[in-house]
Design a binder for these strands. Structure first.
Length: 222
DNA sequence: GCGACAG
DNA sequence: ATCTTGTCGC
């Protein structure tokens, strides 16, 4: 129930649901061969409306294989720490339109690098029962040392002596990315896939493709 | 009490 | 996220 219908709840209940689902997150590798990697992103064309897009790419070539988009009325405000309750409904609607699910999903936001260790990537991973990785552009929680400016370099993201993620340099001389476990992947694997999906730009191709789809005025592809 | 705070 | 112009750099 709480897994597939995270909406229509208030902030307090939302936090309770996170505490309840948190134990189900698997921070170890439990993924098969990854042939398809997907990216999810949301856009808000007009206040009150959300458009979610999923871009499925060939894990080898990073070419777009399939995509889906869905519009959904915003039913939850943006509250730091409760992002999944706002973005999961639209995202799940988009995933439901895919003919075939991907083998791995890179999310726009954190996974375990969250105050209650249950960010958007964890919630989506549990809801779809798919391996997911949290790839955020800015920090929500934790501290870290300097990240060498060379592409591929990374340092652990720590919160209260606990490693909750990694700060990864996907491109030399550019702000790093905050990577954390979503579900069914280990941190090293999460970092490896993030780098593999971002061979040229700061953001992974999966995220870039999903962002382009969510932003475009076009509806579901024919 | 005063900031900080994914998208 | 979204609203916004020019500007520096590959």
């Amino acid at each position: 129930m709480a897994l597939t219908h995270p909406w229509e709840v208030g902030p307090d209940e939302a936090r309770a649901i996170q505490e309840e689902l948190r134990p189900r997150v698997e921070a170890v590798d439990r993924l098969g061969a990854v042939g398809l990697v997907a990216g999810v992103d949301l856009a808000y064309p007009v206040p009150g409306l959300a458009r979610a897009a999923v871009a499925v790419l060939d894990a080898e070539t990073l070419e777009l294989c399939a995509s889906a988009a869905a519009e959904y009325g915003v039913a939850f405000p943006y509250v730091p720490g409760l992002l999944s309750f706002r973005e999961l409904p639209p995202a799940l609607a988009a995933f439901a339109m895919l003919e075939r699910l991907p083998d791995l999903v890179l999310c726009d936001g954190h996974g375990l690098a969250h105050p209650r260790r249950f960010g958007l990537a964890c919630h989506l991973g549990l809801a779809l029962d798919l391996p997911t990785i949290g790839v955020a552009k800015t920090l929500l929680l934790g501290t870290h040392g300097h990240v060498p400016s060379k592409r591929g370099a990374w340092v652990p993201l720590v919160d209260h002596d606990e490693v909750i993620g990694a700060v990864v340099r996907t491109r030399a001389g550019v702000r790093p990315l905050y990577v954390s476990v979503g579900h069914r992947v280990s941190l090293p694997t999460a970092v490896a896939w993030t780098l593999r999906c971002a061979p040229r730009f700061r953001l992974p191709e999966t995220t870039r493709a999903a962002h382009a789809l969510a932003t475009s005025a076009t509806r579901a592809a024919p």
